[in-house]
Design a binder for these strands. Structure first.
Length: 276
DNA sequence: CTGTAATCCTGCGAGC
DNA sequence: TGCTCGCAGGATTACA
């Protein structure tokens, strides 16, 4: 569910609630996550303090004072929040980390269990793991390598945008939003873009992501930030989920197409299939 | 290298 | 009301 803006919002929310706090207890649910939590990890975390909360692509990294890192992916329905222990334990809660002081706990909830929470021994192993699969963040996409990758590929633009190895953090919502902003059709092949169009695409991505971060992400269904608040950007979306509704630029009803295995929303009038 | 489909899961809305 | 079907912010794998 969550893409870069949602994950960034979770991290920003968690940071002031977690940094400096010490783990007092760890509780583990019965059901397995996509990449299962190792039962041996829990006891070793007691007494450890969170020092840093950060993000890389759609991954959350929580650093501990012994150099280890909790690495979390929210999958489609993951929720990572600090909640008052007095609040009723929700269903689908898989992990909870009680914080010293007694009044709050860090909770990992995930209905579909596509997400994961794992412990890494140090930064080097995290870099080895994530670095191998993630490209640059949307805010610093290097112009030349990006242009070469796009124009050298016969893959369609939707598939390229969803490729975490090309750019980290873009998912189905913001891929559609970026293509709408750049006036590009999701099925257009990378190799069919002009230099100008590649530039428009490269610039549209951070623009869209930045706006969504400012709006605390989009809550379509399950997503909530680190303090349990819903996002607000779903109301600002120009393409995603607006099939049949008028294009905000030209009024033409938006269309929907299955591209790269995902539903893709676009304006058939201002996002023409490649003709250059 | 491509694209497509299936897989991992649960829940919800649409349609009958 | 109850049923089935299809779909959902992701990532990986198998196969044509």
């Amino acid at each position: 569910m969550p893409e870069l803006p949602e994950v960034e919002t979770v991290v920003r929310d968690l940071r002031p609630l977690l940094v400096g706090r010490t783990i007092a207890a760890v509780e583990v649910g019965e059901r397995k996550l996509r990449r299962p939590w190792n039962a041996a990890w829990g006891p070793t975390l007691i007494g450890r303090t969170f020092t840093v909360a950060r993000r890389r692509g759609k991954w959350i990294i929580l650093e501990l004072d012994d150099d280890r890192r909790l690495v979390v992916h929210l999958g489609m329905t993951g929720q990572f929040t600090v909640a008052d222990v007095a609040l009723v334990r929700p269903d689908h809660l898989h992990l909870s980390f009680a914080l010293r002081g007694g009044e709050a706990e860090l909770r990992y909830r995930d209905i579909r269990r596509f997400g994961s929470v794992e412990l890494f021994p140090d930064e080097a192993t995290v870099v080895a793991y994530l670095g191998a699969k993630l490209g640059p963040e949307p805010f610093d996409i290097p112009a030349e390598p990006f242009a070469a990758a796009v124009r050298g590929s016969t893959r369609n633009l939707k598939a390229l945008l969803l490729d975490q190895g090309l750019i980290a953090g873009v998912g189905n919502i913001y891929a559609d939003e970026a293509l709408f902003l750049a006036k590009l059709h999701p099925t257009t092949r990378g190799c069919d873009l002009t230099a100008k169009q590649v530039k428009a695409l490269r610039e549209a991505i951070p623009t869209v992501i930045e706006r969504a971060v400012a709006g605390r992400g989009s809550t379509i269904r399950d997503y909530v930030g680190g303090s349990g608040l819903r996002g607000e950007y779903q109301n600002e979306l120009a393409a995603y989920g607006r099939t049949g509704e008028p294009c905000l630029r030209c009024g033409t009803p938006l269309a929907m197409l299955r591209v790269a295995g995902r539903s893709s929303h676009f304006c058939p009038a201002c996002q023409k299939a490649s003709l250059t």
